[in-house]
Design a protein around this nucleic acid. Structure first.
Lengths: 161, 161
DNA sequence: ATATAATTGACTAAAAAGGTTGGTTATTGC
DNA sequence: GCAATAACCAACCTTTTTAGTCAATTATAT
């Protein structure tokens, strides 16, 4: 279990999907704009989220991504694990020969701590996160901003026409 | 709260100190040899551990590092925080203006998760770690290896004399 | 004096994080 | 059929972090 900003980006994006994905797929461009994450980085993250079957994709216009399961069935640990996949070559990963072919001093220790934190995060679902007051507050502000940006683009389209 | 191999190295080194530091200071060279961590990297880590007053140093021959408090009074969270100090310029750190001057969607959320994990790790002291059976087992093996390496060096010194 | 060992600082290599560019492919609506 | 949309994909790049090297300085015990 590694905790870095990468996992946090992924959780933020998934939460955005959960908030806005009620009707139809959400494009990464929308998430990028609302959450301030670069589109290309989102693409990389969602490639992994899709491989882990946490989201499904719809191509073409009006397409985008949707949660692949109910909000209750997706937890924070799954999301973080998905984007951190295939790391762990360095240090002791799953194998217990981390120090010159033998188990290092903190091997079991770290496995335990990891498991504990993993257990903790796996009990927090996207549905739980959405229920938070602070999340709702920020989401509403973002929606207003996103909406006004959309209106602005309509106006400028009209002007240029 | 960030969880990477860096913090783990630090915890391993501190645990080594706790195990061997009963009588007199322990040199980084010893820790380096036993735990397979490069001496210079240990120096960098211990500079931070010392600044955070988790260890104290004794210079000169026979010198080294000692825990600056009782084993019970040093916990895993403190050690990890010490070596990860002064990060957080990227992403939202303590200030809540992480996304273009406003609070991002997962700000409070992440603060909470961080606090939870921090709380969890802060309840695990070096004394707790030492009490673990797996830690004791590995420590004993390392002591034997270290001792035999010491004897080997004595023999080779005698030969070259 | 000398050896030990912390302390400091500059420097380097490799990996990870984060982002860019430039495509291709599938789909929709006209 | 064609243009627009948006996923998908791969090579590439910059910055930061991790991990380690090297060399010099300083304090201290013997």
């Amino acid at each position: 279990m590694r905790l870095t900003t990468k996992g946090r980006y992924a959780v933020t994006a998934m939460l955005d999907l959960a908030i806005h994905g009620d009707d139809g797929p959400i494009s990464l461009a929308d998430i990028s704009e609302r959450q301030g994450i670069s589109l290309s980085y989102l693409e990389q993250l969602f490639a992994k989220l899709r491989r882990n079957e946490l989201v499904r994709s719809v191509r073409g216009p009006g397409g985008g991504y949707q949660l692949n399961r109910a909000q209750k069935e997706i937890n924070v640990a799954q999301v973080i694990d998905a984007v951190n996949e295939s790391v762990d070559a360095t240090g002791c990963g799953h194998n217990s020969s981390c120090q010159d072919g033998v188990t290092c001093l903190t091997h079991h220790l770290w496995c335990d701590l990891s498991a504990q934190i993993h257990g903790f995060l796996s009990q927090i679902s996207l549905a739980d996160l959405m229920a938070r007051k602070d999340v709702q507050t920020v989401a509403q502000r973002q929606d207003r901003q996103h909406l006004s940006a959309f209106e602005d683009s309509l106006i400028s389209a009209k002007v240029s026409a």
